[in-house]
């Protein structure tokens, strides 16, 4: 059993959870994820790690209430426990001294990208982060991202009077100024559609662009193939070869998005392909 040591609501339907899992914390690296199961009848659900502490053996992740399992997870409190938790899964994000790195985050990536940004910062990179949320009520993680980035650009829809309803406009502006104001790398941990569009924006100028793919998964250790995607003509599994891939080499985004929404109708209570109401947006 894995005991919940902290639980906090960050925004409407957004929660931060910290769980005791010493074996996971001992090996965790930026960009990796865990899979948890609430109880013996539960499903296996992946979450990107947003923090960990090797000393007290705890790991942290942020989740958004979208379906059955995340709603059940939201009901759990400090002191409760999860039946199973495995990880850290996937390859760590590639971290090096690149120069100027633009990070695009939305949904689970708002928290999931934090360890990667911190590691990039430690390597002396200049970080510009574009944070996209559907509206101001769903805004979370802004403070932390502002603290670890050199510049934070907020993009929010709704009635807040924001100049940028999505991350696309500020990204286009930054790319337009490249190479005068050079961008050495773009990293996106966001919804599939946003990541796809980011890749199209950076492609003409050949700015290296990396995306964190989070397709459906079952086992998370390379066994089921549910998370397969085509990268550079090869079938890759996001759980063991990824989740970080060169976005310009990812093929078949539309198929990936369709697969991501296989269970949308039943589980998420939302119709597939209604991106406007997508939890990841």
């Amino acid at each position: 059993m894995f005991t919940i040591v902290e639980k906090e609501e960050l925004a409407s339907s957004v929660h931060r959870m910290r769980v005791k899992a010493p074996l996971v914390a001992a090996k965790a690296q930026p960009g990796q994820f865990i899979i948890l199961i609430i109880d013996e009848k539960g499903e296996r659900v992946p979450f990107t790690l947003s923090d960990w502490n090797k000393e007290d053996g705890s790991v942290e992740f942020v989740f958004i209430e979208v379906g059955k399992t995340t709603r059940a997870l939201a009901k759990l409190q400090k002191g409760d426990s999860l039946a199973h938790l495995i990880g850290p899964l996937g390859r760590p994000s590639h971290v090096d001294h690149f120069g100027h790195v633009v990070c695009v985050v939305s949904g689970y990536g708002i928290a999931g990208m934090v360890p990667t940004i911190e590691a990039l910062k430690e390597k002396g990179n200049k970080i510009t982060t574009i944070l996209q949320v559907p509206n101001q009520e769903n805004l979370f993680g802004e403070e932390k991202l502002r603290e670890i980035s050199d510049e934070l650009i907020l993009a929010a829809g709704g009635d807040g009077g924001f100049t940028n309803p999505t991350a696309l406009k500020p990204l286009r502006q930054l790319v337009k100024r490249h190479p005068r104001e050079c961008i050495d790398r773009v990293i996106a941990m966001a919804s599939f559609c946003l990541m796809k569009l980011c890749c199209e924006i950076t492609r003409p100028k050949e700015i290296p662009t990396y995306v964190h793919l989070a397709p459906l998964m079952v086992d998370g250790t390379g066994m089921c193939g549910a998370c397969r995607c085509v990268v550079e003509g090869k079938n890759r599994f996001a759980c063991v070869h990824g989740p970080e891939f060169n976005g310009h080499l990812v093929q078949g985004w539309d198929v990936l998005m369709a697969r991501r929404c296989t269970y949308a109708d039943e589980i998420l209570g939302q119709q597939s392909f209604q991106c406007s109401s997508c939890s990841q947006w």
Binding site: K41, E43, D219, V255, A258, R259
Partner: peptide
Amino acid sequence: NLNMIYSANEFLTRTNLMKAYLYPEYA
């Protein structure tokens, strides 16, 4: 890689290990 094409491993793991045949009692 089209939607609704499974590996046997995924199809069987969902069915047997995760007991999808008892959905929604099993999640």
